[in-house]
Amino acid sequence: MDYKTIKKSEITEFLDNLIKEYEIAAPIEKDDIVVFDKIKSSNGVILEYSNSVKSPKKFVIPQFETLISYNTNEDTTNVKEHLDEQKQFILFGARPCDARSFLFLDKVFSDEKNRDIYYKNRRDVVLIISLGCTQPQETCFCTTTGGGPFSSEGSDLLLVDIGDDYIIQVITDKGAELVKKLGLKNAQKDELAEMDRVIKKSEAKIEPDLELNNLKDKLDNSFDGSDWETLTEKCLSCGVCTYLCPTCHCFDIVDEEKNRKGERIRIWDSCQFPHFTMQASGFNPRPTYKERYRQRIMHKFSYCIDNYNMVGCVGCGRCISECPVNLDIRQVLTSLYYSMLSGRT
């Protein structure tokens, strides 16, 4: 792997240069919270932050998007597909957990079996420059789900903060091409040693892994267990966890039509909402909070392994820090795991 270096004081210039050629999204503070937003200049970009409240998935799966629009008259129907050409796009300053989430979304929307043209149209132009975590939070559990504070999976370039400079790890060809264009300096030996020290120090700060060997098998046997009910008793069945989650990707498609003109719109949906599974007959297979929360856990930690050979969670901790009732997914998993071990369910 190639390692380049850039002074922190040069980051604004670096970004302003990129803005000339690329569309760029970066973490900024907006209305008292950190969010990823498209930027016009490096002003206001913050790199000393824990993580954004909303995940950056919106750049590849927007909360709502028009797929087609149409109009009809007596003899003809005109349909227009909304696949606008996308400008080259850089997601700058994303955390390694969020970068990994893009790999997961690729499996859902853009593998050999499933190819979602709207997703692919947006995703193909994305280059991710992520920023390793030197200050993991109490809600972080990326190491449990296969990542880490400096995991490079999903990133094209990864920045490591070593004090006055960033080391830039060159992960992919796409990343290498960009670095070449910018003519960055190679990192020196002492800088690489400092990078290793920073990485080790940060990894030690993450809460120890949940010990969840063979969690999937245990979950598969727990479907009818009695613990689900007590574990989800405080759940409000809102969509905070799913909408802030970088890997939750379920959607609804609606047609909005007036005077023979209409649009087909795709919108985020959530398995926590009762209407998500409401059938035309009026029957709902997931009528209560218990079934809906169980679905979220089973989907992430069992079905996703079956379907994509990857856990559907990157351990970013957003569902923990923002849950209105502090329903902590780590506690739920641990609790299920140990009650299953003792054969209580």
Binding site: L236, C238, G239, L244
Partner: peptide, 12 residues
Amino acid sequence: SKCIRCYACRNA
């Protein structure tokens, strides 16, 4: 414009 329609307000 900030709202994400998660309905946490309603459900709480």
